[in-house]
């Protein structure tokens, strides 16, 4: 188990470096010169050279990349002498737009993204999985048909579209809910809940639809297996068969998917946050993209990749405890 973990972690580090290299290269090769952008309209060639030197973008590609990587592990210093700026490890650089440290920017917005991700995840797991299980058990019933129809629309409706339709109906027309925002929990829990409920539901709708379909399909497969038939033949009640025998094998693939989806969301619910104007990591990313703020995009991409990869490892380790068949292979 230990060697397995070490191997996985090493591989993960490799993938991260590769992601960083690729992203860095894309911006190096394709983007307009950041020095010109920072310098603005009143700019002299001398000033551009100076900014280039401070940012280190006058260096060859590999030197730049390794300085960037080094900054993450050991920190780095921008410029030299009087105007030098220290950036402690893990240094992701500074935003071109606001001059803020990218790490601080991410840390500042992380709580909002976590709140959105956790709330939505609770909703979609509860609704998606239970709807899927009930549909599988009552296959072909009215419930099943209705639930699967809703699930189909859930995966076909663009969430930015329903987000605004819902906002129009609930906020503008009926005025049941306030416009979504990101208040602190402590001040007014009810208002906090009302402000987040729409983003949670919108995000959860798509995922719940997917999970309901997957759970149903897995469950139907499992219910047809021999060990379930044996359990039934032993005279166990259908509830007991479901709980003891059928649920676990049907849900293991869901765990994998959930790990990936949740980890992905921690990197920011880009569309949902942008549509509702919620100031999380996702909104920050889309703002950074529209302003071509490379250090921020770079930082978020790396962080999102880190979450997905770590999520993946956690899921695989969990798998070994959930699924006895995998346990022997790993140990």
């Amino acid at each position: 188990m230990i060697t397995y973990l070490v191997r996985r972690l090493l591989a993960a580090a490799g993938v991260l470096v590769l992601v960083a290299l690729l992203t860095y290269w894309i911006f190096f090769a394709l983007s307009p010169d950041p020095a010109v952008m920072i310098c603005g309209k009143t700019c002299t060639p001398d000033r551009i050279d100076q900014i280039r030197a401070t940012l280190g973008v006058d260096q060859p590609f590999m030197t730049q990349f390794f300085t960037f990587l080094g900054g993450i592990f050991m920190g780095r210093t921008y410029g030299s002498g009087e105007g030098a700026i220290e950036c402690a490890a893990p240094c992701l650089g500074f935003s071109f737009q606001t001059n803020q440290s990218v790490l601080d920017m991410i840390a500042e917005r992380m709580p909002v993204s976590i709140t959105i991700a956790v709330g939505a995840a609770i909703l979609w797991l509860l609704i998606g999985v239970s709807a899927g299980v009930i549909s599988a058990v009552k296959q072909g019933s009215w419930w099943d048909k209705a639930a699967m129809m809703v699930a189909l629309s859930g995966i076909s409706l663009p969430n930015y579209f329903i987000a605004l339709v819902l906002q129009y109906v609930l906020v503008v027309e009926l005025q049941i809910l306030p416009f979504p925002s990101t208040p602190a929990f402590g001040e007014d829990p009810l208002f906090w809940f009302q402000s987040y409920i729409m983003p949670w539901s919108i995000l959860a709708f798509g995922y719940a639809s997917l999970y309901a379909r997957l759970t149903r399909a897995n469950m139907i497969d499992t219910l047809g297996e021999n060990f379930v038939r044996t359990a039934r033949a032993k005279g166990l009640s259908s509830m007991l068969v479901l709980r003891r025998h059928a649920l676990r094998p049907s849900l293991t693939p869901i765990v994998t998917m959930f790990g990936m989806d949740f980890a992905g969301l921690l990197g920011g619910a880009l569309i949902t946050e942008t549509v509702f104007g919620l100031n999380g990591v996702g909104k920050m990313t889309s703002d950074a993209i529209s302003k071509n703020d490379q250090p921020v995009i770079m930082g978020v991409t790396l962080m999102a990749a880190l979450f997905v990869i770590v999520g993946n490892i956690i899921v695989d380790v969990l798998y070994t405890t959930l699924d006895p068949r995998v346990r022997t292979k790993v140990a």
């Binding site: 894309i26 990197g267 990313t285 889309s286 993946n312």
Partner: peptide
């Protein structure tokens, strides 16, 4: 590698660059 990638962010970054 490609499937473990934050692909939406990456697609957006690529397209914007």
């Amino acid at each position: 590698f490609l499937m473990a990638f934050p692909s939406l962010i990456f697609m957006i970054a690529l397209l914007s660059a």
